[in-house]
Design a protein around this nucleic acid. Structure first.
Lengths: 141, 141
DNA sequence: TTGCGTGCAAAGGTTTTGCATGGCA
DNA sequence: TGCCATGCAAAACCTTTGCACGCAA
């Protein structure tokens, strides 16, 4: 993971800048294909999937699986927080899709626990806490 | 949810007893089909999916969606306490794909913390901790 | 007898892959 | 030039659905 891309292609550039322009939105691979087709600069779907996977590996983009049986969502994560910097975990509401950033000590404690007691080195970039947020719970009641 | 089945069919019986015999294991719909085909008492896959869905609705079985793009796993939960029984979280190695079951208190603590301090109700069936397991870390060094 | 459950086959939708071509360095 | 990336089409994959038949109550 966190391997740099070898080439800098046009498709990669416009795909990444598209994701940058839509912060906090749920973009699926299908959305990307559709968007660029409408723009008159279509990208092959295989390329879209392969580039998205690369971007996720590089840590620039996060991948979300809200529902087991609906397409995965992608979201630009920003470029600063790649290396070691402050760790940030994310919680995603399965209902409204809201992304909550977690910086608290309790989360860090879990990471240490997994490492100390389970020998498991947690990857904060890929791990997402799924659940229902406060607003959606209130709305359901 | 928790609606009782109307009929008591042979397929339902043997499927349920199979799941009961494999506690702590992750059984996919495909596993079920394969098993009963080998046993000489095949069950149609549509039936397998439909019965598994029913069992989940009834609270007898838990369904885990580990990855967006791998088959869902099912696990017998027991018949007594459907509500709030022992939760099971999972950690998955990004390297070898190994799945680790987590039952420890620390994880439960995180769940309580997310609820108390962030108003976020964690979904143990969809949340997966990604990272690198002990063996893979050793192999890399 | 009533109508739910079953099974087969086919559809549905997302993601991956093979392979020839094109483009970056 | 040497590879990697792209794109098309097809495959792979899991899951759902339509419909006729069978079986539980």
């Amino acid at each position: 993971m966190t391997m740099k891309p070898k080439y800098k292609t046009k498709q990669r550039e416009i795909l990444l800048s598209y994701l940058k322009q839509t912060p906090g939105k749920h973009i699926t691979a299908g959305d990307v294909c559709e968007y660029f087709k409408e723009q008159g600069t279509p990208i092959g779907q295989a390329t879209v999937y392969r580039q998205l996977e690369s971007l996720v590996d590089e840590g620039l983009v996060n991948k979300y699986s809200i529902d087991a049986n609906s397409p995965a969502c992608f979201e630009f994560m920003g470029e600063e927080t790649h290396e070691g910097k402050e760790v940030c975990f994310h919680a995603k509401c399965e209902e409204c899709g809201k992304l909550i950033h977690l910086h608290c000590e309790e989360i860090l404690h879990i990471r240490d626990h997994l490492f100390a007691d389970h020998g498991f080195m947690l990857d904060s970039k890929r791990t997402v806490f799924y659940g229902i947020c406060e607003e959606c719970r209130a709305a359901k009641a």
